[in-house]
């Protein structure tokens, strides 16, 4: 009864590319992204769904990759932080986080980026209260959140301007 007997071959769509892996069913999506696919931008902070560092997008909606098994993800599109900047250009959200000093150690940052890349599509005109409500699902130990909130407000404004253009 060797564990390898239980391994399953998966075909995952990650950042628009099809990637094949052979993994145990209990293997967490976070581990497969990081260790099997080398996408180490997704960070693991608690493995019980509280800290939000491992948040990725599944079919465009934020999800904790530590509460998701890779084996569940066949047929779904996974988006990670590595795909957010296009052609070396930071997204408006990433740029705003930089300009507003919305990150320090940066460990929680990918989860915040992914959460709000999705949220700002759903709500392009968020209030400070709404931003703080959504941000409450991502723990940050360094910043005290103030600059993150400012950055998200700024990013929302930039995105709205871009949308108008």
């Amino acid at each position: 009864m060797k564990e390898t007997d239980y391994k399953v071959t998966l075909s995952l769509i990650v950042n628009g590319e099809t990637r094949n892996v052979r993994v145990l069913p209990q293997r967490l999506l976070s581990d497969v992204l990081r260790e099997d696919l080398g996408l180490t931008g997704t960070h693991v902070g608690c493995e019980h769904g509280v800290c939000g560092a491992c948040t990725v997008l599944v079919d465009g909606a934020p999800a904790r990759s530590c509460l998701t098994f890779a084996v569940q993800m066949e047929g779904h599109e996974i988006t990670t932080v590595e795909s957010v900047a296009r052609d070396g250009e930071l997204s408006p959200l990433q740029q705003a986080l930089h300009e507003e000093h919305g990150l320090q150690c940066g460990f929680c940052t990918p989860g915040i980026v992914m959460t709000f890349e999705a949220y700002l599509k759903e709500n392009p005109t968020p209030s400070t209260t709404e931003i703080r409500d959504v941000l409450s699902g991502n723990l940050c130990r360094c910043t005290g959140y103030q600059n993150i909130v400012a950055a998200i407000l700024k990013a929302a404004a930039t995105l709205r301007e871009k949308g108008v253009e």
Binding site: L39, T40, G41, T42, H43, T80, V81, E82, V84, A85, L90, Q94, L97, H98, L103, C105, G106, F107, T109, P110, V113
Partner: peptide, 11 residues
């Protein structure tokens, strides 16, 4: 910031 924002930090 750039490397940390794009997922290219190295922890």
């Amino acid at each position: 910031d750039r490397r940390l924002l794009t997922g290219h930090g190295r922890f």
